[in-house]
Amino acid sequence: MLFDPEIFIQQLLSPAYLWGAFISVAVAVLSLLLATGIGFFVALGRTSPKRSWQAPAGAYVWFFRAIPALLVLLIMWNALPQMFPVFRQDWYTPFVAAVVGLGLVEAAFMAEIIRSALQSVDEGQSLAGRALGMSPAQVMLKVTLPQAIRVALPPTGNEFIGLVKYSSLASVISLRELLTTAQVGVNITFRYAEYYAAAIIYYLIIVTALTLLQSAVEKKFTWTSRTTVKKTKAPAKAGL
């Protein structure tokens, strides 16, 4: 077997890999934030009773679910600068293009997750909030959303992990994320096994960390008093 542990360890600990991993995670985090923001408003449009809101929201989901993420990235990086001078300026880096491109695509999927989460909250909840005199925005923020978030968390965790891996697509627009880092090294040294193995280790670490983060956040949404409830017989007498 041709596998040099020394090369493997050396690459594993190299700043290039660490930086590549950081870029991958940064693209995933930022594009997920962007996708959640856009997705929330698209979901509101999809669940709105008004057709003038439903139609554009539906069109957004339809369009971005149909177009491959790779094509969106190529358009973002190649076509946009050709069409608009704004995108030829210094601020428009592969990193920005990758975050925005993946965020736009992911927003279509997040919109569907958020829509189903919002619809899963019992109707009686907003009814009770409205009966208290809460405004529509207050009902959304203080009653519906906290309950929808709990439902949306597991599928969002899935999407997050997916985005870490999707970030490797950005290699086509010359972003040096984790997989590109490995590929560049391989092109010079031809030590495929060692370089790819180092990439595997990084992906495993990243996804493990995200999984732990997800279960920690989910625990925050269990809604029980964590104190041990003493089995005292509750007096049925009401002291009104």
Binding site: D122, G124, Q125, L127, A128, G129, R130, A131, L132, G133, M134, S135, P136, V143, P146, Q147, R150, F221, W223
Partner: peptide, 23 residues
């Protein structure tokens, strides 16, 4: 809806299925 919300404060409502906020 916003104007209705103000008027609803003066009317208390109790539902068959309680509708407490679980969170």
């Amino acid at each position: 809806e916003r104007a209705l919300a103000r008027q609803r404060q003066d009317i208390g409502m109790v539902f068959q299925r309680f509708n407490l906020f679980p969170h």
